[in-house]
Design a protein around this nucleic acid. Structure first.
Length: 601
DNA sequence: AACGAGCGCGCG
DNA sequence: AAAGCGCGCGCTCGTT
């Protein structure tokens, strides 16, 4: 008897019994399944144990006792429905054994579809949802030992047992087909995500090393300038915000300090790049201006060095590729996160310290191949228009440049994007529209736009008059949340927000979620169409390699790149129409083909 | 030495 | 009355 479980389990160590057990599982429909393996990857390990649990079957299979081991028996699992925690793990082992015509249902994704996304472990779900404390001590034990201990076997069984109980619990929360569709939004992305994670993206180490060296030189120059003005005894560590706060508090007059923003918790002077640049403008021609500017530039360049320099070089594999994780439903809204490294935060091409800088040019296609990428254009405003039924907002999105349209309304006449005034007006309009999507009030918007509250309120009034349905939609969602404690999402899932939610979250969650849903449909459709093409001998070298919220990136051989782009376009349009049937598709996606991520045209 | 809070900043 | 959203990660600094 194992601690915390309802049942005894059977140790299966013969092929005939394994066949009986798996056949029965397939007859019963769904079965929780958990692997214990001798390493984390099929490339250098083996499946030792498979634990199985449903209403009738409670078993642990020791594959080392069975002829052919896991690889020789894996096909028995084909055509079954297996419930797991973290589907990518089990699916990779099945895939390595040539088994892929099976359903793998991730109980974590089931939870995400009901309460909203998040990052959690099986033991977290056990604690939250079953009030059960799990001990993961055995997880890293030696699963290649000839004789496994009782503790190891019990541990292996417990995971399947817990997984099954969680599945039973959360299945009950889904009473409609629509609810199950919400689950599939997450679950069906697993194969596409595996392709991106396993392929990785090629890093031009040589180019990136040169880039890093240039940043190091810029850093040295800033340190020199800062040290000409501030001695080591005043600020020992240039990286330390607290030391800067203490120093500035000491040397700067109170009337000047009064306008300096403070940090949230400790109340120190907030030493951010934006604050420093703003303050520099208040003391023109003084050494303080030089110091503020040098410090702001130091912060920029050290950010690039510490986040996008050596860490990227260090993480590249021997084959030159960088493999990040794409964590499905990691954000509460359902969006992906990326980690190890986070490839969703690689800097865009822009001037830093007055120099054009492209980190994305370090991400390249290997010889004979090209990168292919499309992104949804203004997808959040577009889905806001569709969710709220705002005809004017949709019209402005479809017919042209929505930010210019808003700018024209705000300023009272059409704007010219080629002039500095036009650009500035458009930029302001963009800030207003984003502010609305984020639920900003006049106070927050005025801070972002660096204007007074009265003017910010005027902008909001303009916006709400032009797009009344979109503006009102946010309050509709707030009302629903106050009544039900959750919001229902366009894809059939829901997000729990509690009964006292504030407007900004409620304004943003349904919009961010719907944009994600659209992308989810696109990723699944794109993976399916690539699989079909590859099975027919086309797009043989094409691989999905990344997704960055509203963008998909593939790598394709030179001759396949153009048709790959069209497949991607089709999938992205399909993902959008899946949730917004009949919606206009003009100007929906944009992007291109190039040798690097920085050169997609 | 390891860990977490706090801050800041890169992205969409 | 409270009201710009969502992430991951590097760094500092106090605690354990």
């Amino acid at each position: 008897m194992t601690i915390g479980t309802d049942h005894r389990y059977e140790l299966v160590s013969t092929r005939p019994r394994l066949e009986q057990v798996v056949r029965r599982c397939r007859e019963l429909g769904q079965t929780a399944l958990d692997f214990e393996t001798t390493s984390l990857s099929p490339a250098d390990g083996e499946v030792r144990l498979v634990s199985l649990c449903n209403e009738e079957i409670h078993a642990v299979v020791d594959f080392w006792a069975i002829k052919g081991r896991f690889a020789g028996c894996a096909s028995l699992f084909d055509f079954g429905s297996w419930v797991v925690f973290n589907a990518g793990f089990e699916r990779r082992w099945f895939q390595a054994a040539g088994v892929k015509r099976l359903d793998i249902l991730d109980v974590g994704h089931l939870r995400r579809s009901v309460v909203g996304g998040g990052v959690f472990r099986l033991l977290d779900m056990a604690r939250w949802d079953l009030n059960l404390t799990m001990d993961k001590e055995q997880q890293l034990s030696d699963w290649s030992s000839p004789d496994l201990t009782q503790e190891q076997l019990d541990y292996a069984y417990l995971d399947a047992d817990v997984t099954w109980r969680l599945w039973r619990k959360w299945s009950k929360a889904l009473t409609t087909d629509l609810g199950w569709q919400g689950f599939k939004v997450f679950n069906d992305m697993v194969p596409a995500v595996m392709e991106m994670e396993d392929t990785g993206i090629f890093l031009d180490r040589k180019a990136h090393t040169v880039l890093l060296a240039s940043w190091e030189a810029e850093k040295v120059a800033r340190v020199t300038r800062i040290r000409e003005l501030v001695e080591d005894s005043d600020v020992r560590n240039i990286n330390s915000g607290r030391q800067w706060s203490e120093y500035f508090s000491r040397i700067i007059p109170d009337h000047f300090l009064a306008g300096w923003p403070r940090t949230e918790k400790s109340g120190d002077l907030s030493v951010t790049g934006v604050a420093l640049r703003g303050l520099a403008g208040r003391v023109p021609g003084t050494p303080l201006e030089t110091l503020f500017d040098a410090l702001a530039e130091y912060k920029t360049v050290t950010k690039y060095i510490s986040s996008f320099g050596q860490p990227l070089l260090d993480r590249a594999s021997k084959d030159g590729r960088l493999r990040a994780r794409y964590n499905i439903g990691a954000a509460i809204t359902g969006r992906f996160s990326s980690s190890g490294p986070n490839l969703q935060q690689v800097p865009r091409d822009k001037d830093i310290l007055g120099v054009f800088t492209s980190v994305r040019k370090s991400f390249v296609a290997p010889l004979g191949r090209l990168l292919v990428s499309l992104d949804y254009s203004g997808i959040e405003l577009r889905v806001l228009a569709l969710l709220s039924g705002d005809k004017q907002l949709l019209k402005d999105m479809v017919e042209g440049d929505v930010h210019s349209e808003v700018a024209a309304v705000m300023s009272g006449s059409p704007i010219d994007r080629s002039t500095p005034e036009g650009k500035s007006l458009r930029q302001s309009a963009k800030a207003v529209s984003f502010g609305i999507v984020y639920g900003a009030a006049a106070s927050g918007l005025s801070a972002t736009m660096r204007t007074d509250e009265e003017r910010a309120q005027g902008y909001i009034d303009f916006w709400s008059a032009r797009y009344p349905d979109a503006f009102r939609y946010r309050y509709t969602m707030l009302d629903e949340a106050v009544r039900t404690g959750k919001i229902r999402c366009v894809d059939g899932g829901s997000i729990e927000v509690g009964y006292k939610p504030a407007l900004p979250k409620l304004a943003n969650y349904p919009v961010q979620r719907a944009a994600f849903s659209v992308m989810s449909g696109a990723l699944v459709a794109h993976k399916a169409s690539l699989d079909t093409e590859r099975a027919a001998g086309r797009q043989r070298m094409t691989r999905m390699i990344s997704t960055i919220h509203d963008a998909i990136i593939d790598e394709a051989s030179t001759q396949d790149a153009a048709s790959c782009l069209e497949l991607m376009r089709g999938a992205m349009v399909a993902g959008y129409l899946k949730y917004f049937p009949g919606a206009p598709t003009e100007r929906l996606v944009e992007g291109g083909i190039g040798k690097s991520w920085g050169e997609l045209a």
